[in-house]
Design a protein around this nucleic acid. Structure first.
Lengths: 112, 112
DNA sequence: TGGCAAGTTGAAGAATTCTGAAACTTGCCC
DNA sequence: GGGCAAGTTTCAGAATTCTTCAACTTGCCA
């Protein structure tokens, strides 16, 4: 076996662990986009975005296609959307639980 | 808004981005486990494992319960399993694609 | 109470990752 | 060919994260 699956998973998650990269993936989830568009929405420097795109490219999560002067990025697999969805699910779950705990605490201190 | 969702997602993924933490989550996916058991399967030092467990705890992904001398860990939400499943899906997808590309290349060089 | 097993915590140095600045390609239009 | 727009690459310093070692709790049992 070359790379154990759990290590590949860890690397995949690490690759996703950056706000700009997440936003890029979310935008690409709606369809391919030229770098220019990503840049317009992201409020980061071009070189910085390029770095993050390179990270995603190296990981094989996105593909880049040159069309004349512009470069268009796209998801390599649409499964990425599910991953992001699962993450959102977990986060809302956790926020929910926290909210309930807070409410209980408030109720207790009100009653006690 | 306190923390933007995309940033929370990035932090969540970053939290998962470590081989030991992945393996711990996979084991906990089968049910709660005392640290001792995790340690037995993982081939890392106790203090190192403890560090990684602390990362997962701080992120709210797992919970720790003391039972006498032993500490038992469990997933805070079973949604984590889906996240890991989605990751596996992406990886097998990508390996698959790569495999096909390799096969095509071999076919071409064989034919050419 | 002493001692051991089970974990956790703190800290320092090594290794990675981030960020922004500057330089470098490519393609296009004049 | 000259110049500009669109991206990428390289690099150095700052910030994070990892790993290991040592010290510290807790609970249990003799």
């Amino acid at each position: 076996m070359s790379v154990p699956l759990y290590q590949a998973k860890a690397e995949l998650f690490r690759t996703l662990g950056h706000p700009v990269r997440i936003r890029v993936l979310e935008m690409l989830g709606e369809g391919p986009r030229p770098v220019r568009d990503l840049l317009a929405e992201l409020d980061v420097e071009a070189s910085s975005l390029s770095q993050q795109l390179a990270v995603l490219r190296r990981a094989g999560i996105v593909t880049a296609t040159r069309e004349g002067a512009t470069v268009v990025y796209a998801l390599s697999t649409s499964d990425v959307a599910e991953l992001l969805g699962a993450a959102r699910q977990i986060l809302t779950d956790m926020l929910d639980t926290q909210g309930k705990l807070l409410a209980e605490l408030r109720a207790e201190s009100g009653a006690g």
